[in-house]
Nucleic acid binder design. Structure first.
Length: 573
DNA sequence: GTAGGGTTAG
């Protein structure tokens, strides 16, 4: 047996021993004692092997500094860089900066990998300025950015909505003599597609092959997901076949995306077939993929099937997560099976699952649409059972005073509390609240909630100046009660602006998303409610290009109409 | 003699 093999297996055992100690004991005096008893010498290579396996940053941090104090041990660039990555994932930026100082004092210069991990960490935490500062700093320190540097900067900026900056970085990368590789193309295709530039994403997908870069499985997955999200399900399925013709085996991600696409096309049985195929190819279905089937069947109105998949999931020993419970809950509520909804909510709480704002949103919408006082009371009980802060917020909503400031303050405090929720959930919840207040006759309060939410950027796309004095009011993601409230308050805002500045809008397009090209079904309630409101107040509108979902007001008639004092009170009707 | 970084879903 050559000595190298014995030596390396010895290395492996030390690494394995340390990892199992740290897994069992975490970072603790007991772990420190156990490590001391090992009485082995270790080099930076082995230390790095251990660090890479530690996911808990407190354990990694403890181990790293224990090594640093150990006589005869010296960290190197690799261990420092790995540690930067671990702390970065945990967003421990104070600890990272301390570590970087020590790294330099220890005689280890950060290299391009260190900087890249730093940029990635800042990007993931949404600190884009800091990420760009690192990019500038590394160049001052004489470190050339590589493909990974540019790719990371492109990705984080595009994800944060700064597509222009991302494209700029793509140009700069090529200017620096770095040709895009398959990885870069995949990132760019994803960025462009997610930003709504599907044609450009498509173009790049075909272009990459011409430049000698073969799409890999991830590239295909990205393409399939983009087509599915744009509701081009047939294109998505074609890419799925192309992927297999190209010799790739679908992975878990592929299966999940394809199942969702099939489900949204209404091919539920086919989605189930893909699920079976996934299992046949030895992928172990996880909770979210069961959740997807629960959701698809629930949305199609087949509660029994949804419930069946939920049970099947429990039988494999998986613990449900909150979104899956929400899917089943939504299915029960849709067919007014409030008793089953109640049992499900109880079992959620029993499992220690904390109802999310989506859970509360579902229940509140159900309450708004309740067909009888009994059902409404039942919904209220369910809402109280969730223990969600939105319930206390609604219960303690004051009646609007003369200037409405008391309601504004109440809403402001609530939204501040909800600030860490993602925008979609916040929008959904606010929408349900406004709809509920509006339909319960608390119209002044509904208007105030909408105004504060709009100020706090919960509806960033609702009101937009398309060009000078040409405005778009986009109501298509709202419920009808919210749409009517939002429109009334926005028109009142235009009136006040016009009276103050003397300049009125030259054109307003009111978009309800039920137009010629809209694929949104079931949104006609918004169009109908908006049309009725506009008719009632004689708003001078017309439609263009046969788009019946877009109401346009223009020029002199619009400005004259805005002068009417009733524009201020439209929302009360 | 050896190692470290970037992309996709829910």
């Amino acid at each position: 047996m050559p000595s190298i093999a014995r030596h390396s297996s010895g290395n492996g055992r030390i690494v394995e021993n340390i990892c199992s100690i740290l897994r069992q004991l975490g970072w603790s005096p007991a772990a420190e004692a156990a490590l001391g008893n090992l009485d082995c010498s270790m080099d930076a290579y082995q230390a790095n092997q251990v660090l890479k396996q530690l996911q808990d940053h407190t354990v990694a941090h403890g181990f790293f500094y224990w090594l640093k104090r150990k006589p005869g041990f010296k960290h190197d660039g690799h261990t420092y860089t790995t540690m930067v990555g671990i702390l970065g994932q945990a967003k421990q930026f104070t600890a990272i900066n301390k570590l970087l100082d020590q790294m330099v004092r220890d005689g280890c210069q950060p290299n391009v990998v260190t900087y890249n991990r730093l940029i990635h960490s800042y990007g993931r935490a949404n600190y884009l300025n800091e990420a760009v500062d690192v990019f500038d700093q590394m160049q001052k320190d004489g470190c050339e950015p590589d493909r990974v540097t540019y790719c990371t900067l492109i990705d984080i900026h595009a994800k944060a909505g700064y597509l222009d900056f991302a494209m700029d970085m793509y140009e700069r990368m090529q200017g620096a003599g770095l040709a895009p590789d398959t990885f870069t193309y995949s990132v760019m295709i994803n960025c462009l597609g997610k930003a709504g530039h599907l044609a450009s994403a498509d173009k790049l997908f075909y272009e990459m092959v011409e430049h000698g870069c073969t799409p890999n499985l991830v590239t295909y997955n990205i393409m399939i997901a983009l087509q599915a999200k744009a509701r081009n399900y047939e294109s998505a399925l074609k890419l799925y076949r192309d992927l297999q013709s190209a010799g790739f085996e679908p992975d878990k991600v592929t299966y999940s995306i394809v199942m969702e696409a099939l489900g949204h096309l209404g091919y539920l049985d086919e989605a189930e077939a893909v699920f079976s195929e996934m299992k046949q190819r030895n992928w172990v279905p996880d909770e979210p993929v069961y959740g997807l089937l629960v959701d698809l069947w629930g949305k199609s109105g087949n509660v029994e099937k949804a419930w069946g998949w939920y049970q099947a999931m429990l039988q494999t020993g998986l613990r449900p997560n909150v979104p899956t419970c929400n899917s089943l809950l939504s299915a029960f509520l849709r067919v007014h099976r409030l008793g089953d909804a109640y049992s499900l909510l109880e079992s959620m709480l029993g499992l220690g699952l904390i109802p999310s704002s989506q859970t509360y949103t579902l229940l509140l919408s159900c309450c708004t649409e309740a067909r009888s006082p009994y059902d409404m009371g039942f919904c209220c009980d369910l809402m109280a059972t969730t223990g969600h802060p939105a319930h206390l917020f609604l219960l303690s909503m004051p009646s609007a005073g003369a200037d409405g400031q008391n309601v504004r303050d109440h809403v402001g405090k609530f939204l501040d509390m909800m600030r860490s929720e993602d925008r979609e959930s916040k929008r959904g919840l606010v929408d349900a609240v406004v709809d509920f207040l509006h339909k319960s006759g608390l119209k002044e309060e509904a208007g105030l909630v909408w105004e504060v939410a709009a100020q706090k950027n919960v509806y960033p796309d609702a009101v937009r100046e398309k060009s000078s004095c040409y405005w778009l009011i986009n109501l298509h993601v709202m419920s009808d009660g919210t749409a009517v409230t939002a429109l009334s308050r926005t028109l009142a805002w235009f009136r006040r602006e016009m009276m103050m500045s003397g300049v009125g809008p030259s054109r307003i397009d009111i978009v309800t998303g039920w137009g010629r090209r809209s694929r949104v079904t079931g949104a006609s309630m918004v169009r109908q409610a908006v049309q009725e409101l506009l008719h009632m107040f004689s708003f001078p509108f017309f439609t263009v290009n046969g788009n019946t979902g877009c109401f346009v007001g223009c020029g002199e008639p619009l400005n004259k109409w805005l002068l009417q004092s009733y524009v201020e009170r439209m929302h009360l009707l």
